[in-house]
Amino acid sequence: MNLLAVKSIYKSEMARFFRTIGQSFISPVISTSLYFVVFGAAIGSRIQEVEGVQYGAFIVPGLIMLSVIMQSISNASFGIYFPKFIGTIFELLSAPVNFLEIVLGFVGAAATKALFIGLVILGTAALFVDLTIQHPLAMIAFLVLTCLSFSLMGFIIGIWARNFEQLQLVPLLIVTPLVFLGGSFYSVTMLPPFWQTVTMFNPVLYLISGFRWAFFGVSDVSIGLSLGAIAFFFFVCLTIVWWIFRTGWRLRD
């Protein structure tokens, strides 16, 4: 295992994050505050409680998941697309490293950045609403697994993308709707039966539900199913990345 290579990639990716640390910190704080103004204050004044939890607090796990998923994807996809775009990918391909080391470096850094932003949102939310986390270890586990899984997905998108439009395509057209319709801002039980069934096919529902359970002890689906879903998604992404490096798809000529 070339651990020094993993460290080099990780540090170099994190350096980019630290160069724009102000931006990285301020933008999630502002967007979270805006969500609280719109959903918490405006809508929350009409919906008092959802499943026994104050609405402002109820949306916090979904809000964190929304940002963490989008950040994981955009960090990881940009992280690997940028060297492809400017040509520095040659160095990775000609270095004595295997796929796992490259993935650990890039995905590890992307997940770290997303985790940081998730924690910033959590801190900001705590300023607006009373938050109690009933299962802190499960909360961290869900957060870390989500960061890693969606960073892996972002990594795949970054390798697949041939231009900046494609880089934005999957997050905008697929991931955003899935996250919004995955119960970020409502409980699935609030939907008519037909749409409840449809929502069960949305993989993001299982993440948000499990994450919400870690906070409040209430969930739309069982915690075991949530953990199984995220673990399954993680291994599917890892297998795809392994295949990409084995075949050189969109990387090697």
Binding site: N2, L4, A5, K7, S8, I9, K11, S12, A15, E91, L92, A95, P96, V97
Partner: peptide, 14 residues
């Protein structure tokens, strides 16, 4: 100089 440290690390050298 970061470029050089990066390349060295990538090749597994301290």
């Amino acid at each position: 100089e970061d470029n050089l440290h990066f390349s060295r690390g990538l090749f597994g050298k301290p």
